[in-house]
Amino acid sequence: MKTTTVIKNHKMLPVARELRRKMTPQEKKLWYDFLRKYPVKFYKQRIIESFIVDFYCADARLVIELDGSQHYTEQGKAYDEERSQILNLYDLEVLRFTNLELDQQFDAVCEVIDREVKARM
């Protein structure tokens, strides 16, 4: 059953604020070079349930995750899959990109995001 109301665990707020201050180089690049001035509002390090997603667009119901090496372990993959399933219950689409993709194919990553936002609006 899908729901459209996103629940937020307010106890996570200090962690989210810290993550906003200490973004990875790839998160900074995507934020400052694309998402910050994108015509549809994006939020960085947004709390959804007990998760903190890298970027969130409420209007398009879109989550963007940038995956570093910790996401490629069996435990990391299982956690990401479970997390994506929970986010999907809120009718949220999750786009995942590797840090390497962002570093080497930045324009292509931005095009995918732009296409997905427009398709979901």
Rank of each mutant, 00 (worst) to 15 (best):
T5H: 07
R20M: 10
P25Q: 03
C57K: 09
L30K: 05
I47L: 03
L62E: 03
W31M: 05
K41M: 02
R115A: 02
L30E: 09
R96G: 01
L87N: 09
E82L: 14
F34K: 00
F97E: 01
F55C: 01
Q104H: 14
Y38R: 00
P25F: 09
E18G: 10
F55M: 01
I7K: 13
C57D: 05
Y72F: 15
L13T: 15
V109Y: 08
Q85V: 12
Y79L: 11
Y90K: 10
K37P: 07
R120N: 00
G76H: 01
H10D: 00
D107Q: 13
F51W: 13
T5I: 14
R120M: 06
D54M: 08
R21L: 13
E116R: 14
E49Q: 12
K2E: 12
G68I: 09
K2F: 13
A16P: 08
F34S: 02
D33T: 05
V15G: 02
P14E: 04
H10A: 09
G68T: 05
K77V: 08
T73L: 00
Q45W: 03
D103N: 15
V109H: 06
M1R: 06
K37W: 00
Y72V: 04
L87A: 11
M23S: 12
E116L: 00
L95W: 11
A16M: 07
Q45C: 03
E101I: 06
Y72K: 10
S50G: 01
I64S: 00
V112S: 01
A78V: 12
L102F: 04
R46P: 00
Q70C: 06
R61A: 01
R83V: 11
E81L: 15
T24W: 02
